[in-house]
């Protein structure tokens, strides 16, 4: 199936899911080539022909993608298409799953992150992660943020550590709200505050890349707006890859968007282009299906 023959579908008003599903399954085969510019010249992270298997399940089927420095890359796609799996390859969180096998090449600044010389602990200090459900440690707010710097030995004394904690909390927009109760448990904060605490915790080790897996899915609109604003600010200093189910969110926070479908990367491009003028039929169906 080629992308030229499917402009007529836009004005089809059928919202029925069934029909949607039929189109979706027929739209991809193993020989699919990603539409758009997946590869860049100056990539911060670059993935080449990545395959992931969970036992017999082929979850990622040969994806190549580059993420530019200081950009926010949004990853969208229907549930189960492998967004989380792909994201978790980028800091090797999949290592913790016994049955998970990753093939292909993933580079961070021209360094292969699956290289046997590379220490996974050091990698995760450079590529931080924020999870779907806020998961602060059941420790004080201070200890939550100080944990990373402590285990990586980033601060040589208490004053430096205090600085790091204050900085990170300020950057995550939480400092004013918690500066008087740093020793209270992080689990006692509201959901949105907890998620910002997790972001503060991630940026406390000054990573280069931050991976976020649906960071707002458990939050209300106001907390979501705060996090989105925060993502915008963070992209000045960090490279961010974010998985989201909200297309509005992808449109608001990201510069580029990648559309995943059944373990394949269907289309990638400038966010504005993807949302206004998707090239591939599947992308278009997904986007129009959601926007109605």
């Amino acid at each position: 199936m080629n992308s030229a023959s499917q402009t007529a579908t836009l004005d089809q008003t059928a919202p029925a899911y069934q029909e949607d599903r039929v189109k979706v399954t027929e739209g991809v085969d193993d020989s699919h080539v990603t539409v758009g510019e997946a590869m860049l010249d100056n990539a911060k992270m670059s993935m080449r022909d990545v395959h992931v298997h969970y036992g017999d399940t082929h979850a990622i089927k040969g994806i190549s993608l580059d993420i530019a420095p200081n950009e926010v890359m949004a990853m969208i796609g229907p549930s189960g298409c492998g967004k989380s799996t792909f994201l978790r390859c980028l800091n090797r969180m999949n290592d913790t799953i016994d049955i998970c096998r990753v093939n292909g090449k993933i580079q961070l600044d021209d360094q292969d992150i699956y290289d046997s010389n590379l220490d996974v602990v050091a990698l995760r200090a450079r590529v931080g992660m924020v999870f779907q459900k806020p998961n602060p440690f059941p420790k004080s707010i201070y200890d939550n943020v100080a944990y990373g710097p402590r285990i990586h030995g980033l601060a040589s004394n208490k004053a430096e550590l205090d600085d790091i904690v204050e900085n990170s909390l300020t950057k995550s927009g939480l400092w004013d709200e918690v500066k008087d109760r740093l020793d209270t448990p992080g689990t006692g904060l509201s959901g949105g505050q907890q998620q910002r605490l997790c972001i503060a915790r991630a940026i406390a080790v000054s990573p280069e890349v931050i991976l976020m897996d649906e960071p707002c899915s458990a939050l209300d609109p106001i907390a979501t707006a705060k996090i989105e604003e925060l993502i915008g600010e963070l992209s000045e200093n960090f490279t961010i890859a974010i998985v989201t189910h909200s297309m509005q969110q992808a449109a608001r926070v990201s510069q580029r968007t990648a559309y995943f479908h059944l373990g394949k990367l269907i289309e990638v491009g400038e966010t504005s282009a993807i949302f206004t003028n998707p090239q591939h039929k599947l992308t278009e169906d997904y986007i129009t299906g959601r926007f109605g």
Binding site: V121, A125, G128, M129, N135, F137, I151, R201
Partner: peptide, 18 residues
């Protein structure tokens, strides 16, 4: 112990022992 706590720690770059 919820797996999210383990993930959080591993994601911060803590070793398995840590």
């Amino acid at each position: 112990v919820p797996p999210s706590i383990r993930e959080a720690a591993l994601g911060m770059g803590a070793s398995r022992m840590q």
